[in-house]
Design a protein around this nucleic acid. Sequence first.
DNA 1: GACTCGGGTGTGCTCCGGACACTATGCCGG
DNA 2: CCGGCATAGTGTCCGGAGCACACCCGAGTC
Lengths: 229, 229
Amino acid sequence: MSYTYEYPRPSLTVDCVVFGLDDDDLKVLLIQRGVEPFEGRWALPGGFVKMDESLEAAARRELEEESGLRPGHLEQLFTFGEPDRDPRGRVITVAYFALVKLSAHSLRAATDAREAAWFSVWDTPKLAFDHADILNTALQRLKGKVRYQPIGFELLPPKFTLTQLQRLYEVVLERELDKRNFRKKILAMDLLEELDEVEQDVSHRAARLYRFDHKKYRQLEKAGFNFEL
Amino acid sequence: MSYTYEYPRPSLTVDCVVFGLDDDDLKVLLIQRGVEPFEGRWALPGGFVKMDESLEAAARRELEEESGLRPGHLEQLFTFGEPDRDPRGRVITVAYFALVKLSAHSLRAATDAREAAWFSVWDTPKLAFDHADILNTALQRLKGKVRYQPIGFELLPPKFTLTQLQRLYEVVLERELDKRNFRKKILAMDLLEELDEVEQDVSHRAARLYRFDHKKYRQLEKAGFNFEL
DNA sequence: GACTCGGGTGTGCTCCGGACACTATGCCGG
DNA sequence: CCGGCATAGTGTCCGGAGCACACCCGAGTC
């Protein structure tokens, strides 16, 4: 089966930049390419868009196929379409930006035998295509967005301590925050549910656990409230 | 000449949402379609991407061809790719968002005889395809972006009064601002060059003219300064 | 020369953000 | 059992920014 058109057409792919948080390290999911071009190189997970699926559905599908992950947050990032970005010819890629709770998932072997692994975003191997640009763009987006939308919670386990939350912001924003001011501010928003539980298995005083209240956030959002840290 | 591929491929277009400011009204550029589908309907300017041009270049080219405009600001907005968004088949469109100084340009007749015209963004005719969604997305982007990046100046003539500038923000943000606070804030940024000129042909006291100092802005930007209104 | 229409200016109060250091609690090891 | 250690958890003060507010100015018109 083949397809013929009057004018040439580019290929269309999606690529996903998936972030996860591992204690004090921000990780990105990469897969090792099993075919040319860039065979053996690490790259962002992604692939071709099917003719009857939406772009976002394609991103979810590729991510599921290549890593087994189902992200808690997924949004379109940017479309990369420089004519020479792929040596095989004109390929446009719609990049997506995703967050997963690293604690909750273990990586499944990719279906097509390529390896998938988490890398620190500050120390990635050389990437295929223009994927370094894409990763960079995603990092900027994360940095910008985390401050005025409560998406950071998608990186943490459902129950977390305030210190974990603060660490998350410190890692993403690349600067230290004052503990008291941070707690004051985040608690004042009244978006965290204080649980009757504390963390387990620590060799010091255990911290209280909190949960993010999605329902309350949606209510406040409707009422014109703006999350801002 | 025809082109044959092993797998089906979508078509790729760009569409531009071009905003201009006409006194107290925010305008968007639309063109009237001369061919099916949606013949006679108004739509965003745009067209197919050539195989050897970048996405942004395609946006600029289409805009120039269909209206003669060269925008002062152009950035990628979002990529729309729902499978059914175009009745002719699968068409992905990369939407761009542009600002022009309406004062400086007159609309050239479109080369392909379709009509181009400015419409108030609050009162547009029914648009072709999903262009109403695209316009909406662009409006949100403009609203969000104008507050923390000095792109609003691209909508004003090179020399403008503070009242004009304030009106611009009021129109875009859809709320009134306090005159004194606005002036205090914008002047405190030290980004406006006060000229030795005043506006002409007004039947009341003439207001002083200012110019935006791009060079100074780039300096401050490098030094970590954040525009914010 | 009086009127009209926007232009242009300063102050005080309030609230928010940021700097800052000590006590509390639980575990561990000696 | 007691002391040490590691992190949890908490309140105050100060300065600057945001906001509300009202009057005189200058130019053109009639």
